[in-house]
Design a protein around this nucleic acid. Structure first.
Length: 587
DNA sequence: GCCGTTTTCGGCCCGACTGTTTTCAGTCG
């Protein structure tokens, strides 16, 4: 008789292979190797990351080289990674550049050349080394480094340190969802829910909180701490474990009794301020509310269990209607829930189209036809605006007037063939340093939707930047201001802009400020969205997709919109096409 | 490292901005 030894063959998925290639690109760059080779790795990583198919399947079907940008060399490396999770050549490269040196690249203003100089000439191997160097002012002796460099680096380090503890929602949520799936597959587990700040859809996440119902709590915890995705077990008891995942983020799993599950969800979703407010309402009614349930204080002084299985009953027990997790921040939601006057927050299914995406004509990965097919079939949209870049955003291969006209003709042709769907002709026009637009009006006026956006000159002072943006949206053909504050989560602060002034001006001009749904932007953020709503300005939620699968990032936009109390009626791409077109013509 | 209707070798999207320069290198998108 033959025993099948259940040996886990470690393989790598699309995301892990993409991460590996990004890392290789960084290493090669710091080593000063051929830039085109570096680009090849980075391009391949991007392609793999946004590949709709599982790369393991393509490998099995021997179709790896059909992926654009994958030739014989990368095919071989992918095969090694898939079959053994290692590649000799990559392992050797990783030995040449310490991880601390690669970390230096995350500091804004430090690119491969400077990092290489710091590492090879001054033996800087980590951020700590770098700080010491700056404080000694030794750097000033070298050509090309001045006082401003010192200040910028220190600021960059500070920013990096401040942000590096929390993961962006767009990274943390897929990790949490995968982990929840794995827990669901543990025998005896009946239900798993992701709670914590992820459930509130905060833009960055500190750790993962998961709750489960299980027939065998202790066995479940034991299976959990032995999952392959776990790097370190920090604590593990009969109903609860605290672990560190391979991705570096901490995760807590608690096994809860069914009769307490709703109360636990409420408790572990937070926010803290919201929970405290709810518990206070309970106290006033002689109720004790905790993670096990709602309890009534009896004359004897003992507490009697009232409810706990369903979350909504916790709210009901203190006279509130159900409050969606995204707005549980104690910022007025409890008062409105008392009067049953909460906003009806926008949902994924309300979105009818996307008004910003990029085709291969500029820096996108896919053709207009591919984007449209995906928007129609996968996303279920009624319209999609193609908004490629303009020439001044150099590397994007932006469209000059001649190419814009060609694209317009092409879209007109495609539209004739489409049923129940329309491609909108658009451009994401660069706003130059002086507020001028990168395309002439006679071109802009031929488009359905013109989006203006800043891509350079981020360091202008507030007044100049604000005037620059306002000048751009005053152009009669500009309808939308893309990623209005320019922040990149964990990487770049918003540029100096008086956003309130811009919002007020936009209201006056009847222009729209975008909520960019890409998870590292989420710009406008929840705070600004509330301001927009207060002023009565409409929104648009755009993915800014550079590949068709990125149209799926819409969900992060909707999540952030919900945190900003946004309703479907406020969002122009939740409107039917006719109404949207009418609106775009009028503004 | 990829790619091919100018190519199997020799290209490979580049413009704006910053901080350091005194004419430009590095970074960013």
């Amino acid at each position: 008789m033959q025993f099948t030894l259940k040996r886990k063959i470690k393989t790598m998925d699309n995301r892990e292979i993409a991460q590996k290639f990004y890392k290789v690109a960084d290493i090669l760059e710091v080593l000063g190797q051929n830039q085109f080779r570096v680009n090849a790795y980075r391009r391949a990583a991007q392609t793999i990351e946004s590949l709709p198919e599982d790369i393991n399947e393509l490998y099995k079907q021997n179709k790896l080289t059909e992926i654009p940008g994958i030739g014989a060399g990368l095919k071989e490396k992918i095969e090694e990674l898939i079959t053994s999770a290692h590649s000799k050549e990559i392992d050797d490269l990783e030995k040449k550049v310490p991880i601390g040196v690669l970390e230096l690249l995350s500091i804004e203003g430090l690119g491969p050349k400077k990092v290489k100089f710091l590492n090879s000439k001054l033996h800087i191997n980590s951020i700590n080394d770098l700080i010491k160097l700056i404080k000694s002012h030794r750097l000033l002796k070298f050509k090309g480094w001045g006082e401003k460099s010192e200040i910028n680096i220190l600021q960059g380090v500070e920013q990096y340190k401040k942000f590096s503890e929390r993961l962006p929602l767009g990274i943390a949520l897929p990790i949490a969802e995968e982990l929840a799936e794995k827990i669901k597959n543990i025998p005896g587990v009946k239900r798993v829910e992701i709670c914590g700040s992820i459930r509130r859809r905060r833009e960055t996440i500190g750790d993962l909180d998961l709750l489960a119902i299980s027939a065998h709590p202790e066995k479940t915890i034991n299976s959990f701490v032995h999952l392959s995705v776990i790097k370190q077990v920090k604590a593990s008891g009969p109903t609860k474990a605290n672990v560190v995942l391979k991705q570096g983020i901490e995760a807590d799993l608690r096994v809860i009794k069914p009769e307490s599950f709703g109360a636990a969800m409420n408790y572990f979703t937070g926010s803290k301020a919201h929970n405290i407010h709810i518990r206070k309402l309970g106290q006033a009614r002689n109720l004790k509310i905790n993670e096990y349930g709602v309890f009534k204080k009896e004359k004897s002084g003992k507490f009697k269990f009232l409810t706990g299985a369903e979350e909504i009953n916790v709210f009901k027990s203190v006279g509130l209607s159900y409050i969606p997790p995204e707005i549980r921040e104690d910022e007025g939601e409890i008062e409105l829930a008392k009067q049953n006057k909460l906003p009806r927050l926008i949902e994924d299914k309300d979105i009818k189209g996307d008004l910003q995406c990029h085709s291969e004509a500029s820096d996108g990965a896919d053709s207009i036809e591919e984007l449209v097919a995906y928007a129609q079939k996968v996303m279920g949209y009624k319209y999609l605006a193609i908004t490629d870049h303009t020439p001044s955003v150099g590397v994007t291969h932006g469209l000059n007037p001649k190419r814009v006209l060609e694209q317009i003709k092409k879209i007109d042709r495609l539209n004739k063939k489409l049923r129940n769907f329309r491609i909108l002709k658009g451009m994401e026009v660069d706003i130059k340093a002086d507020g001028q637009l990168d395309l002439p009006d006679e071109i802009l006026k031929k488009l359905d939707v013109v989006i203006a956006a800043i891509h350079t000159g981020f360091k202008q002072p507030t007044e100049i930047m604000t005037e620059r943006i306002i000048k751009a949206i005053r152009n009669p053909y500009v309808k939308i201001l893309a990623h209005p504050t320019g922040r990149i989560i964990n990487k770049r602060m918003p540029y100096n802009v008086d956003i309130e002034k811009v919002i007020l001006e936009a209201k006056k001009l009847n222009k729209i400020l975008e909520l960019n749904a890409y998870w590292n932007r989420l710009d406008l953020n929840d705070v600004n969205l509330k301001l927009v709503k207060k002023i009565g300005l409409k929104n648009v939620i755009n993915t800014d997709a550079h590949a068709r699968v990125e149209l799926k990032n819409m969900r992060y936009g909707v999540m952030t919109a919900r945190r900003g109390w946004v309703e479907a009626k406020d969002v122009i791409n939740a409107w039917p096409m006719e109404r949207l077109l009418k609106f775009l013509k009028k503004t």
